[in-house]
């Protein structure tokens, strides 16, 4: 009897460790930094990627579908360019110089839900005189391009950009630098 209980305990620990490592791997393995110093992460949903099952699972577990490879690429960031964690207590200025050539969208989500409160897209954004695009992320209303992050502490920025062609898959990088402007 003791052996059966002991054996079952081993199996239960093994199963729990397996599920726990799967949940962790879905969050960690799927996301790959786009460049060594960049705050932007990309989820490698390409079938050629060894982490593809984890990357696809990352989207499905959040109740959403992955971006269509060859049409859209999606990048997320939970940090500013100086490495600080994005917080709704601070204001951030996102600058792309020059403006992205393809259609794009930017949104901020957090507070336990994946749906963003506001989304700004290439169609809505107003470019600066020098051709750059500046987007302010702040809880307070701002003139120009403005995203309101969700209430609470940490939030995630999501940048989605259309790919010009399938031959450029993997070649589009996030154009926006994330500068903390005020806390």
């Amino acid at each position: 009897m003791r052996r059966v209980v002991s054996g079952s305990l081993y199996l239960a620990v093994g199963a729990l460790a397996g599920v726990g490592s799967a949940v962790g791997a879905i969050e960690i393995y799927g996301a790959v930094p786009v460049a060594p110093e960049s705050p932007w992460m990309s989820f490698e949903v390409s079938p050629n990627s060894p982490v593809q099952p984890y990357a696809v699972a990352h989207f499905l577990m959040a109740g959403r579908l992955p971006p269509a490879l060859g049409q859209m690429r999606e990048f997320t960031s939970q940090r500013s360019s100086d490495g600080g964690v994005l917080s709704s207590a601070c204001d951030y200025e996102l600058v792309a110089a020059p403006a992205p050539a393809q259609w794009w969208s930017l949104s901020a989500s957090g507070g336990g839900k994946s749906e963003p409160d506001t989304v700004i897209t290439a169609d809505m954004a107003i470019a600066e005189n020098d051709g750059s695009v500046r987007v302010v992320v702040s809880r307070n209303a701002n003139p120009g391009n403005w995203i309101r992050p969700p209430a609470g502490e940490a939030f995630t920025l999501t940048y989605m950009v259309a790919e010009a062609s399938t031959s450029q898959a993997g070649g589009v990088l996030p154009a926006f630098a994330i500068a903390r402007s005020r806390c």
């Binding site: 729990l16 397996g18 599920v19 490592s21 799967a22």
Partner: peptide, 12 residues
């Protein structure tokens, strides 16, 4: 160990 691998793969 094998149970853990099966649980990990099954979950993902």
């Amino acid at each position: 160990l094998f149970t853990g691998i099966a649980a990990h793969s099954g979950f993902v």
